[in-house]
C-alpha cells in the first residue's frame, strides 16, 4: 500500500483532499471503458425484468405502456386453475431434482476413480475423452442419444438382444415414464467428465505425504480414499453444492425440447417449454410471462428447500 501511494502519482504535491470530481476526471478512461457496458447490461438484463408487469396486464402488442389494461392477478388465477400446469410443474421439479442429485454425486466419484489411475498417459487420455461431450451441442447430443436408443439398429437394443435380455427392440423414446431417466442419463453422459475437473484439481492439491504416511500405517486404497481424499476435497464439494443448488434456477428446456416428442409430452414438458408454447407460439404474452414468474418463484423455493436439507446434513448454510 505504501508503495502504491508513494509511486503512483509522484509529482502531485497536495495529495490529500482531492475532490471527488477531480479524481473522476483523472479516471475518465476508466469510466469510458466501463459505462457503455453498464448501459448495455441495463438494456439487455434489467429492462426485461420491467417486462414482468405484463403478467398483471391484458397485454396487447402495439399499445403503449399506459394504454394497457391492468387485470391484477387474473393471469395467475387462470394459470393455477389449469390442470395441465400441475403436470408441467411436476415434470420440472422431478427433472431438476434428479439432475441435481445425479449430476452432483457422480462427478465426485468419477474424479476420485480417475485419481486412482496410476498410468499417467491413460489417465490423461481418459480425462480428454471425458470432456469431449461437454463441447458438443445439445442438438448433436440429442441426435446421438436417439440414434443409440433407436429401434432399428440402435446399439443399446442390439446389445440387449445379443445378451438375450429382450426379444424385440424396446422403443425407449416412446415410453413417457422413462423420459426423466433418459434426460438425466443424457445429462450425465454429457457433463460427467467436465464436472469432475474441479474435483480433480482439488485432489491434486492434497499433500502426497499424507498418502505415504497412510500407506506406512497399513491403510488400503479404500481407507486412503475415505480418510484422505474425501476430507481433502470436502471444501470443494461444499462450494460445488452451493453452485449446483444455485443452478436449480436454470434447468433450461433444451434437453426436453430436443429429446422429447409428442408421445412423451406429458413427461417432457417443463415450465420453460410451457412458456414457449403458450406465450410465444399462441401469442398469449401476459399468460406466458405469468408462467415465467411462477417458474422463478418455484426456483427460489427449490433453492431455499435444498438449502434447508443441506444445512441439516452438514450444519453449513449455502445462502
Amino acid at each position: 500500500m505504501a508503495m502504491e501511494n508513494g509511486t503512483a502519482l509522484p509529482n502531485t504535491t497536495p495529495k490529500r483532499r482531492k475532490s471527488k470530481w477531480s479524481v473522476a476526471l483523472e479516471q475518465k478512461y476508466l469510466f469510458f471503458m466501463s459505462v457503455p457496458f453498464v448501459i448495455w447490461i441495463i438494456i439487455f438484463n434489467y429492462i426485461p425484468v420491467w417486462g414482468w408487469t405484463m403478467a398483471f396486464q391484458k397485454f396487447r402488442p402495439g399499445l403503449s405502456f399506459r394504454e394497457q389494461t391492468w387485470v391484477g392477478f387474473d393471469n395467475f388465477v387462470a394459470l393455477f386453475s389449469e390442470p395441465h400446469f400441475y403436470l408441467v410443474l411436476r415434470n420440472t421439479l422431478a427433472m431438476s431434482i434428479m439432475s441435481l442429485v445425479v449430476g452432483y454425486t457422480v462427478p465426485v466419484l468419477f474424479a476420485i476413480l480417475l485419481n486412482e489411475l496410476r498410468h499417467m498417459a491413460f489417465k490423461r487420455t481418459m480425462q480428454t475423452i471425458s470432456y469431449l461431450p461437454h463441447f458438443v451441442s445439445w442438438v448433436v447430443v440429442a441426435g446421438l442419444i436417439t440414434k443409440m436408443l433407436s429401434t432399428d439398429g440402435g446399439i443399446v437394443n442390439q446389445l440387449l438382444i445379443a445378451i438375450h435380455a429382450i426379444d424385440k427392440p424396446i422403443q425407449f423414446m416412446a415410453h413417457g415414464e422413462w423420459f426423466w431417466g433418459i434426460v438425466t442419463m443424457s445429462d450425465l453422459w454429457k457433463e460427467m467428465g467436465w464436472n469432475s475437473i474441479i474435483y480433480l484439481a482439488a485432489i491434486s492439491g492434497i499433500d502426497p505425504e499424507l498418502y505415504d504416511a497412510a500407506k506406512v500405517d497399513g491403510a488400503g486404497r479404500f481407507k486412503r480414499i475415505w480418510h484422505i481424499t474425501l476430507p481433502g476435497i470436502r471444501p470443494t464439494i461444499m462450494v460445488m453444492m452451493i453452485l449446483s443448488i444455485g443452478w436449480l434456477t436454470s434447468i433450461g428446456f433444451e434437453k426436453q425440447f430436443l429429446l422429447g416428442n409428442s408421445i412423451v409430452q406429458d413427461y417432457s414438458e417443463v415450465l420453460d417449454l410451457y412458456v414457449l408454447n403458450y406465450g410465444i407460439k399462441m401469442g398469449r404474452f401476459s399468460f406466458g410471462t405469468a408462467v415465467g414468474i411462477v417458474n422463478s418463484i418455484v426456483s427460489i423455493m427449490l433453492l431455499l428447500i435444498s438449502n434447508r436439507v443441506f444445512k441439516r446434513w452438514t450444519n453449513e448454510s449455502v445462502i
Partner: peptide, 17 residues
C-alpha cells in the same frame, strides 16, 4: 454486474425487448 448473476427476465420479456 453481480446482480445479473441472480435473476433474469425470462423468455417472453426478453423476446419482447
Amino acid at each position: 454486474f453481480v446482480l445479473t448473476l441472480y435473476f433474469s427476465g425470462g423468455i417472453i420479456p426478453v423476446y419482447m425487448l
